[in-house]
């Protein structure tokens, strides 16, 4: 694939990954978001859904690539897609910490404008106890936060110079945690919905297929390797 085509595709990937965010910003600007009955609930679910969708898209890169050598170029988009998954996961977390907690942004912004930045801390002191309580008590919050921490570590180590500094093997070992993050994110979803609600089944099915594809690929590679070994033993 030519360099030009790769650049064009990268622009396209950026564009596609930004569409949900642009939609959210548009809904905010048009006032449609504020007209919703429970905007905070909507934003939380919207950003959480897209974090998971894009994380799954990122995990789909490698299995897709294996279908054909012609698809090898897809690897060049993996980091980009992964960083967007982190972007939406961070928006999701920020929605929870800033909006869901009841942090009064309007008052804080006014405080900053009128030269009273102390209000940032004052408001934070009000909302922090319930957040800490959630983090200590509620397992769906814990597992979701754990998934975000993994994505944070992967995002921080994503630049090429850090990869070189870490060494390919170490870097790969760390970045395999993306599977743990994806599994934790899906568990977060299941623990969040009410008993009986099956909304997360689609995300779960896609993740299962992507994980099975990897297991199948590894198994096939081993099977192919076997005859080579046996011929060697007969020779000796």
């Amino acid at each position: 694939m030519s360099k030009r085509a790769i650049i064009a595709l990268k622009v396209l990937v950026h564009f596609l990954c930004l569409v949900p965010f642009a939609w959210l910003v548009h809904s905010y600007n048009s006032g449609a978001l504020a007209l919703k009955a429970d905007p905070v609930n909507y934003i939380t679910h919207f950003t959480g859904d897209w974090a998971l969708y894009i994380l799954l898209a990122c995990l789909a890169v490698t299995p897709l690539r294996r279908f054909s050598p012609k698809l090898a170029f897809l690897i060049r988009f993996r980091r980009l897609i992964g960083l967007y998954a982190f972007f939406y996961a961070t928006l999701h977390l920020a929605t929870y910490i800033i909006l869901f907690s009841g942090y009064d942004i309007v008052m804080v912004l006014n405080g900053i404008r009128t030269g009273q930045p102390g209000v940032i801390i004052k408001e934070w002191k009000i909302v922090w106890p319930p957040i800490l309580n959630d983090l200590l008590k509620r397992r769906f919050i814990q597992v979701g936060f754990f998934a975000w921490l993994i994505l944070l570590a992967l995002a921080l180590t994503s630049p090429a110079f850090i990869m070189r500094a870490m060494g390919g093997k170490n870097w790969q070992r760390l970045h395999r945690l993306i599977y743990v993050a994806a599994i934790a994110a899906v568990i977060h979803f299941w623990w969040l919905v009410k008993t009986g609600v099956r909304t997360p089944w689609k995300d779960t099915a896609v993740l299962t297929i992507l994980l099975l594809a990897r297991i199948a690929f590894t198994a096939m590679k081993r099977l192919r390797a076997k005859p080579a070994l046996s011929t060697r033993t007969t020779k000796s």
Binding site: Y28, A34, A37, D38, P39, V40, N41, I43, F100, G102
Partner: peptide, 13 residues
């Protein structure tokens, strides 16, 4: 506490 759904029309709960 609860998020009161009223005619405020703000994204802040």
């Amino acid at each position: 506490r609860e998020r009161r759904i009223d005619s405020t029309n703000s994204i802040l709960p």
